[in-house]
């Protein structure tokens, strides 16, 4: 059994994370209006999204302090999702007749 006490977040930390998320939202919308060339707009947007998601997971969902197995569950869910996407893409991107040939 884990003997540790539950972590209690301070107001300062919670509000700080909330503020950071707000700021990142403004950043990502701002970058959108800069209208970066095609691949870059989505890349920047996704990097910001991953960063925001990580903040929520670590500090709102307490994974930073929690037992590591819970973090492992979250990561493995994303790993298996990546397997679904990547192995499907090696079909859909490399078909002789690209798109639905019906």
């Amino acid at each position: 059994m884990s003997g540790h006490e539950h972590h209690i977040s301070s107001d300062k930390l919670l509000l700080g994370v909330g503020g950071a998320l707000l700021l990142l939202t403004i950043v990502t919308v701002g970058v959108h209006y800069l209208a970066l060339p095609s691949p870059w707009s989505i890349i920047v947007a996704m990097i910001v999204a991953v960063f925001k998601g990580t903040l929520v997971a670590l500090f709102f969902m307490n994974l930073y302090w929690d037992e590591k197995f819970n973090l492992m569950i979250l990561i493995s869910a994303f790993v298996f999702l990546a397997l679904l996407v990547l192995l499907t893409l090696i079909d859909t991107l490399f078909r002789e007749i690209p798109v639905p040939s019906f």
Binding site: F80, L83, L87, I90, D91, T92, L93, F94, R95, E96, I97, S101
Partner: peptide, 22 residues
């Protein structure tokens, strides 16, 4: 078991690359 599902689809019109990998 999560890496092999494409072997059900060898004749479905799946890309040859995917066939070989699976």
């Amino acid at each position: 078991s999560f890496l092999v599902w494409g072997h059900h689809m060898f004749v479905s019109g799946q890309a040859s690359l995917a066939n070989m990998v699976f």
